[in-house]
Design a protein around this nucleic acid. Structure first.
Lengths: 342, 342
DNA sequence: TTGTAGGCGTTATCAA
DNA sequence: TTGATAACGCCTACAA
């Protein structure tokens, strides 16, 4: 292993000079800097992470706590995790992956051991046990999602309320009057998953303002479940001409079932999805969709935690930021003007 | 921060005793062990990770390098990542997430800094640049996937050859004689992605042995692409009664298109998928599928790397293990006896 | 069975 | 602008 002392010897300077060249924390003559840099290159020196963490009292690691549960749409989680990792690297941080099932103890372990300088928590519940722990330990953290009491942490999430409203507006603009909202399975709502409840609330409010009649039905995301849901919808409201789908697994079955039942999209019924663009593009017809960027979510989360870490290590008290990312509507082939009344 | 010295004082012993109680590396009287354990509890002591890594010259961290690319089916990647994380914790390791785009330099950085004790590489290419780096640095590693020259590292992967053979056997057993193999996009084969090539090879060989006629067609996994692929298949081989699909995105479209074209599954044609069981269950009819366990893959990868680390820190030269996980066939509703000749 | 003490590689303070 | 040097917290060989 090549150490800072090796580099110092090779460059003919003291090890502290090497350290300062690398950290940029004090003025170094051009000549010395050059020599040191070159020695670092030649010897292939990389500072020992443990020693650095010990001396500087910062590990330059951010822990990312991901859900084990898979009722969340997994590709989105992964996209966020990768965005976090990429963004973190750009700020000089590495990312430690830990799973939700470690719970509050996991948070304690990571913080108390100094393994990570801060945490990013995914799949946050409104009343999340980990948040008090963070406050108690004075650990810097960012939540992806919203919580009831988020004092002492930062938050970032998609603006699901706006996303729901966008769906209502788009269908209303096209003249639809009877809408069905196909949501996630009932378990998701019972857990009070923020994204599901807030989307629905945003849709409901805007639908009310625009004079839409609508009903909301849960759906497990399998073919059978979707078939059952659709049958009930059409029985309860035969005049339904617009569908909002917030359930990745239900999209394919829904399109198939509509076709089977003799309804053409978008001439007879319009379908708008709340899902990734990539997924929306996969169907026929390609789906009009409301989307939030997972990449952006990860990037903002990293910026928040890095900001908190910086001000806290400068002795300051970080602001509790709250960021809501604006969703975007992309109109494709699955929505069109409401059919004329028969 | 509570240190080992705090615990020692609280328990009325020396800090080395605390260390030994925690590591179990020397005999400790029952009484002392009890007192130390209780002090650890009371004070909420967690060993400082940096100090530990520095002194013991092991970080107890495994780095997991994941692909940025998303033409791999993402949920599987995530499942592996989570399985790795969970399994690693059971061996006392944490997992550092790094992305493929760091390339060989990333491997160098992680190894030279001592940030991680070993690496697990996903999405390995046959001629992967990172492998020589690993050998050069003497870094312990496990590949998920196979490489041409894997000396100095361990490997684990699904037995895709066996998976392909299982598909051929199942359809042959049911009396099918003309089969179409719907694969991934051509880019995947041009990259010589092992899983794609090996599955095809396994299928081809067994198909030959069993006297099946078959053709292989690439497919991008969109609706349009699947439609084009299917049209060509049916034009080239109107007598096709069996479909093997190794492309998650093409499954839904294929089923829809078969139905649209008046073919009933499984009475007219049989469909067998190479995909996760969870996905296979989502369609109607539920799909007969050949599956490998992502969880198992992650678990074995961790066991391999932990094993390597153990023997190497004991001064030994680790074996280069090569594990192939046997896939399983689950018969569901999408395959049945070949129709009688008209 | 337990304690003492040196060292792991960096950072950062204090001098020069 | 640069150099010594004392922490940082833990592990482990050596002593007792």
């Amino acid at each position: 292993m090549v150490t800072i002392a090796d580099v110092a010897r090779h460059a003919g300077v003291s090890s502290s000079t090497v350290s300062y060249v690398l950290s940029g924390k004090r003025a170094i003559s051009e000549e010395t800097r050059r020599r040191v840099r070159s020695s670092v290159q030649v010897l292939g020196y990389h500072p020992n992470a443990g020693a650095r963490a010990l001396a500087a009292r910062r590990s330059h690691i951010i822990a990312l706590m991901v859900p084990l549960r898979t009722d969340v749409y997994v590709p989105v989680m992964m996209e966020i995790a990768i965005a976090v990792t990429t963004a973190a690297r750009q700020h000089g941080y590495d990312v430690l992956l830990i799973t939700n099932d470690e719970g509050p103890d996991g948070v304690r372990r990571i913080a108390a051991s100094g393994l990570a300088d801060g945490l990013i928590l995914m799949d946050v519940e409104l009343d999340d046990e980990r948040i008090p722990v963070l406050r108690a330990q004075g650990t810097q953290a960012t939540l992806i999602g919203l919580a009831d009491d988020a004092r002492g942490v930062s938050c970032v999430d998609h603006d699901f309320v706006a996303a729901g409203a966008l769906c209502a507006d788009h269908l209303a603009d096209l003249g639809h009057r009877e809408i069905a909202f196909i949501g996630y399975g009932s378990g998701v709502y019972h857990r009070h998953a923020g994204y599901a409840e807030r989307t629905l609330a945003g849709f409901r409010d805007r639908a009310g303002q625009r004079g839409l009649r609508f009903l909301h039905r849960t759906c497990e995301g399998t073919y059978e479940s979707t078939a059952g849901t659709l049958a009930r919808v059409l029985a309860d409201r035969p005049g339904t001409t617009g569908f909002v789908v917030q359930n990745e697994g239900a999209i394919g079955p829904l399109l198939t079932l509509l076709r089977t039942s003799g309804r053409t999209v978008p001439e007879d019924v319009s379908v708008i999805a709340l899902c990734q663009d990539q997924l929306a593009e996969q169907f026929a017809p390609r789906l009009t969709a409301v989307t939030g960027s997972a990449q952006e979510l990860g990037r903002v989360a990293v910026e928040q935690i890095v900001g908190r870490l910086a001000t806290s290590s400068d002795g300051g008290r970080p602001d509790d930021d709250r960021a809501l990312l604006t969703p975007a509507l992309t109109v494709r082939e699955s929505t069109g003007p409401a059919p004329l009344l028969p």
